[in-house]
């Protein structure tokens, strides 16, 4: 479904991603792990079309998406929930969700999706008329994910959804990801919470210094002990 090959991204003189190749197949939950500054978020930004790539290719369903605008990439079916969540603080929860459905312009479907959303995210129904900026971190994260789902993406990309949240809320978010996965969503997940991620992912890529260091199933990664090396600095 998603093929990234030899991706290279640079901010001025600083190369954030040297050489990343990865693949996500339909129905999979693929995880990208690695320390801060390893190049995970930059990789996602390149997929979302918000940073320019230097070289390498990104294919989604056989179509190259390098150089396409963020809105065109979303239309093709890739929705990215960014690290800072980026909900619209001065819009109500309702308006935030409405914006998620912008690309679909069909009011009846929107209402149906809304019902669905409230089952998955009951808190959003409670907060429906509240401003996004007044929600707690966990609620904002749920809103951000719900908003992206409103676009019915074929591939949902989550950038560190557990970042800065209380442990209890992190549990909620991870079980939510599992729920989405069992409902058939294809997910690319970036996380720093390695153990939790290995528990739920189908396949994992470990990124270090802008390169894919190791890839494989969670069991393979666990048995290699490589993760410890990277995280504890050998």
């Amino acid at each position: 479904m998603l093929h990234v090959e030899n991706l290279k991204v640079r901010y001025g003189a600083i190369t954030a991603v040297h050489d990343v190749s990865l693949e996500v197949k339909e129905g999979e939950l693929v995880a990208l792990i690695g320390v801060n500054g390893a190049g995970k978020t930059t990789t996602l930004s390149a997929i979302a079309g918000v940073v320019k790539t230097v070289s390498g290719s990104i294919y989604f369903e056989g179509q190259s998406i390098v150089g396409k605008s963020p809105e065109a990439i979303l239309k093709l079916g890739v929705a990215v929930v960014p690290e800072q969540r980026d909900i619209f603080p001065s819009l109500t929860v309702e308006e935030n969700l409405h914006m998620g459905a912008f690309s679909r312009h069909n009011h009846r479907e929107y209402l149906a999706d809304l019902k669905e959303t409230f089952i998955l995210f009951p808190i959003l129904e409670e907060r429906f008329q509240q401003l996004g900026g007044t929600l707690s971190g966990g609620e904002q994260q749920q809103l951000a994910i719900a908003r992206s789902i409103m676009a019915h993406p074929k591939l949902l990309v989550l950038d560190e959804p557990s970042l800065g949240l209380a442990p209890k809320i992190v549990d909620q978010i991870f079980s939510l990801i599992v729920t989405l996965r069992t409902r058939g969503s294809t997910i690319l997940l970036v996380e720093q919470n390695v153990n939790r991620t290995l528990d739920i992912a189908d396949r994992v890529y470990l990124i270090n210094n802008g390169r894919v260091e190791i890839q494989g199933t969670p069991d393979q990664l666990r048995s290699q002990g490589a993760i410890k090396d990277i995280y504890l600095g050998k």
């Binding site: 979303l74 819009l91 308006e95 935030n96 409405h98 914006m99």
Partner: peptide, 24 residues
């Protein structure tokens, strides 16, 4: 209106509106 809400959303965070498929 959808366009009006999109305008307000863009004032909040222009990049995110694009990532939701709202044409810049």
């Amino acid at each position: 209106t959808m366009l009006g809400i999109a305008l307000r959303a863009a004032s909040d965070n222009f990049r995110m509106t694009r990532m939701l498929g709202i044409p810049a």
